[in-house]
Simulated scan of single mutants.
Amino acid sequence: MARRYSKKASADVAGAMKKRKAGTLKSGRSGRKVKSRKQAIAIGLSEARAKGKKVPKKAKKSAKKSAKKRKTAKKRKAKK
């Protein structure tokens, strides 16, 4: 399977996680301390994106969800 993020991007996320653990990671405008693991990862990825590292912009939609959408669209079309 292909690598999702570059190694350098992973290093940025690891740095953000260390800051969170130390209690020095702060969020956007408010400047509040980050306690959430997920938020720390998001901040790390955001910083990596800003530096121009290989990080996808958005998670891909699951095949299951798109298949469900196609099925409902087909039903609507059949009703008309």
Rank of each mutant, 00 (worst) to 15 (best):
M1R: 10
A2N: 07
R4E: 06
R4W: 05
Y5G: 00
S6Y: 01
K7N: 10
A11D: 10
A11L: 09
A11I: 08
A14D: 11
A14M: 11
G15R: 10
A16K: 00
A16W: 00
A16P: 01
M17S: 03
M17A: 09
M17L: 15
K18C: 06
K18E: 12
K19Y: 05
R20V: 01
K21N: 10
K21Y: 08
T24E: 11
L25N: 01
L25M: 04
S27G: 12
G28M: 08
G28E: 11
R29T: 12
R29Q: 09
R29V: 10
S30R: 12
S30V: 04
G31C: 07
K33N: 09
K33D: 07
V34N: 08
V34D: 07
V34S: 05
V34W: 03
K35A: 09
K35H: 13
K35P: 00
K35D: 12
S36W: 03
S36H: 07
R37I: 14
R37W: 15
R37M: 11
Q39V: 15
Q39N: 15
A42F: 04
I43V: 12
G44H: 00
G44K: 00
G44E: 02
G44W: 00
L45A: 01
L45V: 03
L45F: 02
E47P: 00
E47A: 14
A48T: 02
R49P: 03
K51P: 01
K51D: 06
G52S: 02
G52W: 02
G52L: 03
K53E: 13
K54E: 11
V55G: 00
V55P: 00
V55T: 01
P56T: 03
K57G: 07
K57S: 10
K58P: 01
K58Y: 11
K58W: 07
A59T: 07
K60I: 08
K60M: 08
K60L: 09
K60V: 12
K61Y: 06
S62C: 05
A63L: 11
A63G: 08
A63R: 13
K64F: 09
K65I: 11
S66D: 14
A67G: 09
A67E: 14
K68E: 15
R70Q: 15
R70A: 15
R70I: 10
R70F: 07
R70P: 03
A73K: 14
K75M: 12
K75N: 11
R76L: 15
R76G: 13
K77I: 06
K77H: 14
K77S: 14
K80F: 06
K80P: 06
K80H: 13
